[in-house]
Each structure stands twice: as C-alpha cells, then as structure tokens.
Design a protein around this nucleic acid. Structure first.
Lengths: 186, 186
DNA sequence: TCTGTACTAGTACGTCTGTACAAGTTCTCC
DNA sequence: GGAGAACTTGTACAGACGTACTAGTACAGA
C-alpha cells in the first residue's frame, strides 16, 4: 500500500490500521504484526515510527479522541439549534438521531467502548477515557444543568454499551422517549 | 490452598480465581498461569479440570451470571415491595440504592463490563452477555412497561460503564433524580 | 559527486503462551 | 492386598509475541 517513500503517509497508515485492529480484536489482542499486515508495511516499520506498541496504540486512540471532540462540537451546534423547536425537531429528537447516527458507524462505537474498558485496567489510558466520557457530559450539562447532563450522558453511554454487546441499535422511539423524559431543563 | 485431595474444591477454586483474574486484567490477558497462581494450584491442574482456557473462562463467567440472576430475583422483590411507597422509599430510591450497592463491589461490576466488551468480539460469549443484559431489562419492564424498562436498564448500564472507567460511583442524588424521571409507569 | 541522514526490510532474540504428556500418588472396589 | 481409575505435579514443546538490530536504499545539502 504505502510502498514508495512517504514517511508521513506510513505514519497515518499505521495509526489508521491500529484503530481498525483495536476495534476488531480489542486493545489486549492488538499486535505489531496484525497492525503491520493491515497497514501493508513490514514489521520493522512499526517500531521505527513508534518505539513501543503502547506508544502506537496510545497515539491511535488519542487521534480517535480528537475526531470525537470534533464531532462533539458539531453535536453542540445541532442541539443548540434545536432548542425551542417543537417536539418533532426539538433537542430530544435531534440527540436521538445523533446517537443513532453515531452507532451506525459500528467499528467506531466499538472502539469507544474498547477504550473505556481498557482504561479500567490500564491507568495510562484512564485520563484519555475520562476525557472522552466527560466531553459528552459537559456538553449536555451546558445545554441543561448538572443533574440532567449527567443523566443524559449516562443514558447515551448505556446505549453505546448495549449496542456493542448486541450489535444492534435501540429502537428510535424508545430512545427518544427516554431522552425526552430526562431532558427537563430548569 | 487446596492441597489435600479435594477435586470439587479445586474446581471451585479455579473458577473463583478465574473470575478474579478476569476482573483484574481482562479476558484477553487472562492466562492459565495467572489463574493457577491465584488458585494456589500447579499449572497442570488447570487443563486437567478444564480442557482449554476458553472452557475455563466460559465456565467462570457462566457461574458469575448465575449469581447475577440470583441477585436479580432479590432486586425484583425489593422493587416490588417499594411500589406504592412514598418517594423517600419508593422504587426510584430503592433502585438507586441497589445500583450503588452493586457498584460497591468493584471487581464484580468490572467483571460485568469485561464480559460485555469481550462479547463484542467473541461470539461464543455474546449469548451469555445478552442474557445478562436482558435480565435487568426484563425485570424492569415487568415492573413498568417496555419503553420504561429499556430506558431504566440502559441508564443503569451507563452507570456501570462510567464506574468501570472512572472507578467512582455517581452521586446518589443525581442518579435518583434520573431514575425518578424515567420511572413513569403507565 | 560525495557524505551523512532518514528510511526500508528482513531476521533474530529471549520471553511468554496454550497445551501435551509422563511419572508419581492416592483413592475405590474386589 | 492388588488392580485400575482418579488425581497430582513438573516439565517440555511449538508457536506467537515485543523489540533489537543489521544491511541495504534513497534522499538532503555540501
């Protein structure tokens, strides 16, 4: 794939391949060899660009976290735009659609859950996972209040977890109703 | 630990040790040697009682799932008893306390999340995880209705996930308020 | 054109893994 | 007490792992 001399391209290819492998088999089963094969580069290239496997995985997860941050900005804009709208296009409906849209990208949702759990027994990842977790909560807290933000973010995390296990998204109407019940801003 | 001849005791010790190791390091990093050391038995004993590592882990998780089923029965009884009570001791307060009580046993909560995620990329575990997931949802659905049961179970799963990441339980008042908002039985 | 640096690519190493197995010990049943 | 089954224990093996390393190649600036 990245055959001709293109260091920056290889770096990107390695990070992208790492994200894919982690999403598929989990952090703990992610190996240099699997990443190299996926990226189409020889084994030695992995350690040339990232001294250790841990560095490579961390860098990949951090990059994914940045993408998630960018998404959150978009979510914030859409949710703000929905405030004051009638129920049909109000914040609860918009959040429901955003969540379901996110889940449609299954590998990505799984990657997020994977990071969450890996953080449970890998202290170095904990701050990254916490950042990810709090990003959504903070956003929702700003739109409502502390308690409501917590409740909504927790519900969404539960949806992610369930989707990771079952491989299926929840029914839109059930989710919308739940969000609507929680979204009681002062 | 289990030195004298006691096959059934060894079997139990191996299962208990497996649960502990899985909760600590995750399914993917659980090894024969770690389990044997934890159980205080020689390496060979692990494959004598369970032909493969997968058999051992599956058996341990199934055993944990049975314990969780038993817990659910208790939850059901307490929640039923709380119906019709004033807010202070009503279902929302009781469920809050049950969840927080469950989280107090951190290794156990982590084990549950661990199973959830492992199921994401280990098809054999998926049915077990789904069973675990649906157990709570069914219970809550019986006490309320389908949509409410889904919403409450999802919130609780979100709480478990967050607790696994951060290592901290949510504030009781936030959680109780969220449950109360969702718990609108027809 | 020469030289040093950046990069490539393949291989080698020590360690850890799941599992097999052989030799020994203790029990059960006749 | 003797035989066979059940159980114990330590060791061995092939494979996969992270990472180090060497030899080769392409590019920069002199």
């Amino acid at each position: 794939m990245t055959n001709s001399r293109d260091p920056e391209g290889r770096r990107r290819a390695l990070l992208a391949a790492t994200v894919e492998v982690v999403a598929e088999v989990g952090v703990a089963r992610t190996t240099h060899r699997a990443i190299a094969a996926r990226a189409g580069v020889p084994l030695g290239a992995t350690t040339y660009y990232f001294p250790t496997l841990h560095d490579l995985i961390s860098a990949a997860l951090e990059q994914a976290a940045e993408a998630w941050d960018a998404d959150l900005v978009e979510w914030a804009a859409k949710l703000r735009g929905a405030q004051g709208e009638p129920r049909q296009s109000g914040p609860a409906s918009v959040l429901t659609q955003l969540v379901l849209g996110y889940l449609a990208d299954q590998p990505r949702a799984r990657l997020e859950c994977e990071l969450y759990l890996a953080a449970g027994h890998t202290p170095e990842l904990r701050s990254l996972a916490t950042h990810w977790l709090l990003g959504l909560r903070d956003l929702l807290t700003q739109l409502t209040d502390k308690s409501t933000g917590f409740a909504l973010a927790t519900l969404v995390d539960g949806v992610f977890l369930q989707a990771t296990v079952t491989g299926e998204a929840p029914e839109a109407e059930d989710l919308r109703l739940a969000i609507e019940r929680l979204w009681v801003s002062d």
